[in-house]
Nucleic acid binder design. Structure first.
Lengths: 344, 344
DNA sequence: AACGTCGTGTAGATTGATCTACGTCGGGTA
DNA sequence: TACCCGACGTAGATCAATCTACACGACGTT
C-alpha cells in the first residue's frame, strides 16, 4: 500500500494541497468548514506528513542526542532530564547510538547533521576540539562534559575538580594513603585534555601531591565499563599489590573494581572504594557505593535550555558548571562506621 | 555559512550534478579523472549529502529502534547486539526515546515512520495489537518481546514460560512456599496479553497452582524500575507480611525489592530473590542476584537479521524463540549454600 | 564512408510539503 | 455603479538529491 501524500488528502477533501498544508500547520486563512473537511480526509487516509519533504524547506523540529555509551546509567539520567524539559515544547528527539567499543562520536554527530536536526546535545563526545568547533559553526551544539575553552558551542559540566577533591580528601581523612585511581583509557590516540576523566585524573594527582602522598599516586587505565575495569584492576593488583583505597572515575568502573576486590577477598574495611556519577545502583544497599553526585538530570535539563537559546539565535558561548556532592556510603566507611551500620 | 549542495560541488568540479551523484553513489559510468575531481571538490567544500533530499526518492538506509525505557540494561544489551550485527552492512541506526513515565510507543514508532526508516525494531512496545499490525503493513517491523500471534511483523522472544518455570521451581525446590511475584503495572488501560510480563505472571500462577501453593499466590504490581518496585514491595509487606521469596519480573525491579528487603532487615536467608534478564549488575558479587538469562544480545542480533530479510522482501511472518537459562546466585541460595559461600 | 556500439556525461523530470504571490468572491462604502 | 478591502483559496516555484532518457564522441567493423 502506497503512503498517502498531501495531494491525496487534497483530492479527497476537494481542496488544494496548499490548503491542506495550512490546516496541518495551523496557519491562518482557514475556514472552519475547510478545516473539518481536511481533518476528515486526513483521518480517513491515515495520512502523516513526511519529515523528509518538510526538511527540504526549513527546519525539522528535531533535536539529536549523541552518547558514546548507552548502557551507562549516567547517560540515561541526562536523557531523562532532556526529555522532561522537552515535554513542554516538544521537539522530536532522536538518539544516535555509537558502537560501545569504538566510541566514534564523529560518525554519530555527522549523521545527525545529515538529518538536518535543529540542534545537537553531545554527551562526553570523544572527538577533537577543532572538529567540534568546525561542526558547531554548522549546527547549534551543546556539549555535556567538556571543559575546553572552545568558542562555537555551549558546555555543561560538573565541577569535576571539586568533586574529585572531595572524594580523595574523604579517603585521606578516613586514614587511607595508598589510593589508586581508575581513569579512562581512550582507545583513540588523540588527546583527551578537557574531558571529565582527564580533569579527575589531574586533580587526583594534585591532591595526592599536596597531601604528601605523591609516592602513592597510582593510575589504573580502563574503559569505563564494568568488565574492562575488573580486568584492569586485577592486573594492577597482581603487579603492584593491594592498595587501601580506589577512586574510580565512574560508577560502572567502580562496579568492576568491586568485583575484583571481591575476587581477592578484600572487604570495604581493607580497601575503600569511591565512584563517580552517583548512579542509582550506587545507592542500592547491596552495593552501597560512595560516589560523587554530579546531577545528570539537571545537566540534561540545562543543556536542553541552552540549546533552545542557541537555536533561538544566541551567538555567545555559554558555560554552566553544576556543583557536585560527595555521597558517603558503606564502600568507603571507616571501620567504626561499618560496625555501626551492621549493628542497626 | 550556508551548507554546500550537490550543485556547489558540481560547479567546483566543473561537471554536472548527476555526475557528482554518480560518484557519491559509486554508480558506474564514471571515469577515474572525473572521480578524483569530484572527490577533491567534496573534500574542499566539506560537502555532505542531505538525508532528507535522498529520502525524497528511494530509501533512507536507516533502521529505527524503539525502546520504552532506555535506562533498562536489558535494552542496552539488545541494542549492542543490533549494533554488532549491523557493523557488517551498515545501516544508520537511530533510536527514538520515549518518556520513561509515559511509555507511549505510538509516538515513537510513528515518528520513525515519518522519517521513512527502512525498518523498525521495537523492544517490548506497549501498544495494542491492531495498531501494530496496521503499522507493519506500512513499514517492516520486528518486535522483540511480544508473544502475540499477529501476522504482519516478525517477533523475537525469550522462552518466558520456561524461564519462569525454572525460576519458580528453583524457589520451591529450595524450600520456599510463600512466593510473591512482582509484575508490571502498565499505566495504560489496554490489555497487555502477549507481553513477556503477562506470560511470566500467568506462568508463575500456574506453577504455584500445580505445586499446591495456589493459596500463596501473591502479586505485587509495579513499573519495572527500581524505585516503583521498592515502594510497591514495602507497601505489600506492610499489608500482607513478609514472604519467604520474591520472583521479580525483571532485574531492575529486583533491585528495588532488594532495597526494600534491606530496609526491613531481611537477608537472603529470610527471603530468597530471583530476577529476570540476567543483567550485568545481577552478576556483580555485591548483588549476586539469581536471574533468568534470556540472551538480550542474541535477541538484538536475531532481530536485526530478520529485519534485513523483511526489508529484502520476505512476506511470511517469522517467529524466533530463544532459550533461557536460570543463573543461580547468592540471593536465592539455600542456607547451607550461603554458609559455604561465606566460608571460602 | 556509413553504421553500430560502448563509454562517458548531461538535461530535465521527479519526489512531497511549504510558501509566496496572486486570484476570486462577498460585502461595505462613496 | 464603481471601487476597495479582507477573508479564503489556489497555482506554481522551491528545496537537494536521484534517475531516466538521451546526447556526444571515439572507435571498430563492414
Amino acid at each position: 500500500m502506497q503512503r498517502a501524500t498531501i495531494a491525496d488528502v487534497a483530492a479527497t477533501a476537494g481542496v488544494s494541497r496548499a490548503a491542506v498544508s495550512k490546516v496541518l500547520r495551523n496557519a491562518h486563512g482557514v475556514s472552519p468548514d475547510m478545516r473539518t473537511r481536511v481533518e476528515h480526509a486526513v483521518e480517513q487516509l491515515g495520512y502523516r506528513p513526511r519529515i523528509a519533504a518538510r526538511a527540504m524547506r526549513g527546519s525539522t523540529n528535531t533535536i539529536g542526542i549523541v552518547v558514546n555509551h548507552l548502557a551507562n546509567h549516567f547517560f540515561a539520567e541526562v536523557l531523562e532530564g532532556v526529555i522532561e524539559e522537552n515535554s513542554a515544547e516538544p521537539y522530536q528527539l532522536i538518539v544516535a547510538p555509537t558502537a560501545p567499543s569504538r566510541s566514534d562520536g564523529h560518525e554519530a554527530i555527522e549523521s545527525l547533521y545529515d538529518r538536518e536536526v535543529d540542534g545537537i546535545i553531545a554527551v562526553a563526545p570523544l572527538v577533537d576540539l577543532e572538529w567540534l568547533e568546525r561542526m558547531s559553526s554548522r549546527v547549534p551544539i551543546v556539549v555535556i562534559g567538556r571543559h575546553d575553552e572552545a568558542g562555537g558551542y555551549d558546555t555543561v559540566v560538573g565541577d569535576d575538580a571539586a568533586g574529585t577533591e572531595a572524594a580523595v580528601h574523604h579517603l585521606i581523612d578516613t586514614g587511607r594513603t595508598s589510593i589508586a585511581h581508575v581513569t579512562h583509557a581512550d582507545s583513540h590516540a588523540r588527546s583527551d585534555a578537557g574531558t571529565p576523566h582527564a580533569i579527575r585524573r589531574d586533580t587526583y594527582a594534585r591532591v595526592m601531591r599536596e597531601s604528601g602522598l605523591a609516592a602513592h599516586t597510582r593510575l589504573i587505565w580502563a574503559r569505563f565499563e564494568e568488565q574492562p575495569a575488573y580486568e584492569a584492576t586485577l592486573r594492577d593488583i597482581a603487579e603492584n599489590g593491594v592498595p587501601d583505597a580506589v577512586f574510580a572515575g565512574n560508577d560502572d568502573a567502580a562496579l568492576g573494581v568491586l568485583r575484583a576486590l571481591h575476587d581477592i577477598g578484600a572487604t570495604a574495611r581493607d580497601v575503600a572504594l569511591v565512584g563517580y556519577d552517583n548512579t542509582r545502583i550506587a545507592a542500592n544497599p547491596a552495593v552501597s557505593l560512595t560516589s560523587v553526585d554530579q546531577q545528570g538530570h539537571a545537566m540534561g535539563r540545562t543543556a536542553f535550555g541552552l540549546l533552545r537559546e542557541r537555536i533561538g539565535g544566541r551567538r555567545e558561548p555559554a558555560r554552566v558548571t553544576l556543583p557536585t556532592a560527595l555521597i558517603i556510603r558503606r564502600s568507603s566507611a571507616s571501620s567504626s562506621q561499618i560496625n555501626q551500620e551492621s549493628q542497626r
